[in-house]
Amino acid sequence: MHIHRFERFWIGVSLVAIAIFIATVVIGFSVYDLRVIGAEKTVDPQNLQETKFADPGVRKAEPGSEVDYEVYVMSRQFMFNPGTAEPITVPTDAKIRFHITSPDVLHGFEVVGTNLNTMVIPGQVATFTTRFDTPKTYGLLCNEYCGAAHHVMEGRLKVVSKSQFNEKQLVQ
């Protein structure tokens, strides 16, 4: 088969470009720790009262854990608990692991203006770890259609400085 000289050149350029794109992602993963959600664990969405989601909120991590705080968030039609009625409050300079699930339909958990963004799927627990450097209040919203009042599902994530963080508010 005859391939025009220019076309051969173009194919070469294309393949190099594709390799660069893939490399960018790999570098993001390994060097900048930009990760995506993976498979963690499943739960029975009809029996969440037997899990930590029955008492959602911020907890101190078990001693020896690789993180400092664990945050359990229940996303349901049409609120985040915690998040909507009162903000999710976490301290700066601490490793924080989020666990999010839903007892009803799919939701999204988007911390506006950040790359904290995950699907919330009944039966699955979305888990990710993060850390905040500066105190700031972020908006929180549901970005997956979840029913007629999807657009009212919102909340806040409040990062307070470590010294002002009140451990008494933690879920025991």
Binding site: G28, G108, E110, N115, N117
Partner: peptide, 11 residues
């Protein structure tokens, strides 16, 4: 690009 995608996912 999957880790960049997270910035715009479902927006």
């Amino acid at each position: 690009a999957m880790n960049i995608n997270i910035l715009v996912h479902n927006t």
